[in-house]
């Protein structure tokens, strides 16, 4: 079943300058899809459309059988959550506890249940001992973990990570990636928006955007190797795959090395 359907979606801020142009994309329940693209390719606009912060100038978006419109958007947001890029600009609460509670308060979850869920999901992202901390005493990675807990507590089926790791240090980045794969294994549909190929490796499918258009949608394995497509969108191949392509070009036929490089690129 397709949990997300985008049918011929376009969006423009100004006439004649489409930021997104004729996007068709279906995402299955439990799938992990990476959206790759250069700076300004429209990938963040895509995430804002999915969460109903922007309205398509053309086409329609269906989330969990709800066609997005002004009337249904609030209902649809109960099914889809998003972690944004800047850890500081999405931390609403005065403390970690208050921030995780924010979404639950909006959903009118009764207080008893709220307390339970906060506790549960703070544990899940290993932030339980920080519940009373204020945001300016947390690192960027910790704030992003709180953001994840806030969405998990709302028990949405889909989570979008919109360049959620780009402002973090390597350790913070690794942790967020670990949570992504763990959540995906538990059945959460995950959409990562990034230009970091290492984030794309673990996903099921990859969508490559260039100047507002989808130039490729395919299984992750085949896109990762597609130098031509990736370079069109300012992206770089993973190093083992670069070597693999080089060996092919030079006609160096060592099957053992080739299959090894291929395996290596798919493990993180």
């Amino acid at each position: 079943m397709d949990i997300i359907q985008m049918k011929n979606v376009s969006f423009s801020y100004q006439q004649d300058q489409p930021v997104l142009d004729g996007i068709n994309l279906n995402i299955k329940k439990g799938e992990w899809v990476t959206i790759l693209g250069h700076n300004g390719s429209g990938k963040s606009t895509l995430s804002k459309l999915l969460i109903g912060l922007l309205k398509p100038s053309q086409g329609e978006i269906i989330i969990d059988n709800i066609t997005l419109s002004r009337e249904t958007v609030h209902e649809a947001r109960k099914h889809i959550g998003i972690v944004f890029q800047n850890p500081d600009n999405q931390f609403v609460g005065v403390t970690v506890r208050d921030d995780i509670a924010f979404g639950l308060e909006n959903l009118q979850v009764p207080r008893n249940e709220m307390v339970e869920r906060i506790d549960k999901y703070a544990h899940k992202v290993h932030m339980a001992e920080y519940l009373n901390k204020e945001p300016h005493n947390l690192s960027g990675g910790q704030k992003q973990r709180v953001a994840i807990a806030g969405i998990l507590a709302m028990q949405t089926d889909i989570i979008i990570f919109d360049e959620a790791t780009s402002m973090l240090d390597p350790k913070g980045r690794r942790m967020i990636l670990d949570y992504m794969s763990q959540l995906n294994k538990e059945g959460v549909t995950i959409i990562t928006i990034t230009h970091d190929m290492k984030e794309a490796v673990l996903s099921d499918r990859i969508v490559v955007l260039k100047k507002g258009k989808i130039i490729k949608v395919d299984k992750a394995k085949s896109v990762l190797k597609d130098q031509e497509t990736l370079e069109k969108s300012n992206l770089e191949l993973l190093l083992p795959l670069k070597v693999l392509n080089y060996l092919e070009k030079e006609n160096i036929d060592n099957e053992k090395v080739r299959s090894y490089l291929w395996e290596l690129s798919l493990t993180r």
């Binding site: 250069h38 360049e163 780009s166 230009h195 300012n234 770089e236």
Partner: peptide
């Protein structure tokens, strides 16, 4: 170079 795509970074 934080936040730039690979081409921009290089």
């Amino acid at each position: 170079t934080s936040g730039l795509d690979p081409l921009g970074r290089n």
